[in-house]
């Protein structure tokens, strides 16, 4: 997501149903038609609606997962794409199926740290704001990703 792009994020009941199952929550009605409550981590699923999201296969573009070879991209750093270090959500009101949200993102702080288990770490903060059709703020999501110098050592 670039700095100024706005993404339209329709909050749909069936998507919420499948999302809830995927986090082990089977209390949601199976019909997918109920106005089931939206889990607080659901805003990250906006990735599905971002045409440029880098962690989804796109036709005609190299993909770093395996096919004929262990990776479809030569010479990528071993931790391609980075890891998720922190995530914070703040809700001004509940997100509900039927909302059609406008989402903007900006890059926040970046910083570095040395780690025994993964070498030099470069942290980047990204802030997303979710607004409803009236332009009112529904949620702020702040994620911190980290690029490691090498794979994280396993104890």
């Amino acid at each position: 997501m670039s700095d100024k792009k706005t993404i339209t994020f329709p909050v749909e009941a069936t998507h919420v149903m499948m999302f809830r199952r995927s986090i082990g929550d089977y209390a949601v009605p199976d019909t997918g038609l109920e106005k089931a409550a939206v889990p607080p981590t659901f805003p990250r699923a906006v990735a599905q609606f971002d045409p440029d999201y880098h962690l989804r296969l796109k036709p005609g573009e190299a993909w770093f997962g395996s096919g004929k070879k262990p990776s479809g991209v030569e010479g990528k750093p071993s931790s391609a794409g980075g890891l998720h270090a922190e995530q914070h959500f703040e809700f001004l009101r509940p997100m509900v199926p039927g909302d059609v949200l406008s989402v903007t993102e900006h890059v926040g702080k970046t910083w570095e740290k040395e780690s025994k288990r993964a070498g030099k770490l470069v942290f980047t903060e990204r802030v997303q704001e979710f607004r409803d059709q009236k332009g009112e703020l529904v949620c702020i999501s702040r994620g911190v990703s980290v690029r490691t110098e090498r794979p994280v050592d396993q104890k």
Binding site: M18, A47, G65, S66, P70, P151
Partner: peptide, 22 residues
């Protein structure tokens, strides 16, 4: 599938072992 995060680190054992070093 639900989140849209298709990073092979989470689904692709061959990529993890032979390319990513996990």
């Amino acid at each position: 599938g639900t989140s849209g995060d298709y990073n092979p680190l989470h689904t692709d054992d061959i990529y993890c072992r032979e390319a990513a070093g996990y």
